[in-house]
Amino acid sequence: MSELTIKQSGPAIFLGRLGRSTLRGCEQLGDATMLGFHALSLIFSKPWQGKHFVLQLYALGVGSLAIIVITGAFTGMVLALQGYYTLAKFGSESLLGAGVGMSIIRELGPVLGAFMIIGRAGSSITAEIGIMRVTEQTDALEMMAVNPKQRILLPRIVAVILAVPLLVAIFDVVGIGTGYIVGVELLGVNPGAYMAELVAKISMHDMYGGWVKSVVFGFLIGIICTYMGYRAVPTTEGVAQATTQAVVISSVCVLIIDYILTSFFL
């Protein structure tokens, strides 16, 4: 046999790779959307999965509560501290409440909350589903006439969609509360001014912005993390890789979508 080597120029290799990865990205995006919505479409099919929604809400929602309270608390405290020193330069410490509340409700609550939920709940969703694939548990369900998309994927997606807005609201309240403690109790901002400015400067519009974001992030996290687990290469390395990717991809998506949503809601 004669030697046959096809020589490729640098740009050709680069374009080839770019094209391949773009196509692959589009393919995955479509596949993930289809899988997610297929699972969601099974919500009203029999049998009703109520018990599994509760169990997942417990595992993913209640399980993430501690980390959300901790991050919320420290975010509020740091914002109050930083904000105070900046505002004090202009002699407008009274705006501290507005500053802390605005940043948390519009931006930090949804985004940092989403990050924490990705780390705590998202990664465990991917790893759990991936392991179920590797050990053929999903096939076993399938053979026992239980649809794994309905039993495994659906409750997790629904639980995340419900849990994210609730957790983000808790994050917001805790953050505003610790901001108050640091600002008023430690730094001596007028207590009336903190709450009054907070209430005066934040409108319902800002609230909607935060809520829409948290619901959208819930969808994103639910669909991406279940997809990555369900379509993971069924080996131990495959699951490990899928879990890392799920965290990275959902975090990046959250930031990108956050920018897009902010530009719409401003």
Partner: peptide, 22 residues
Amino acid sequence: DKRLYQLRESMGMLFQYSALLN
């Protein structure tokens, strides 16, 4: 799919690695 699941109620399968729900 619906009929497939009906048929499967009269099927069983033993998997290579048991595939017990852990």
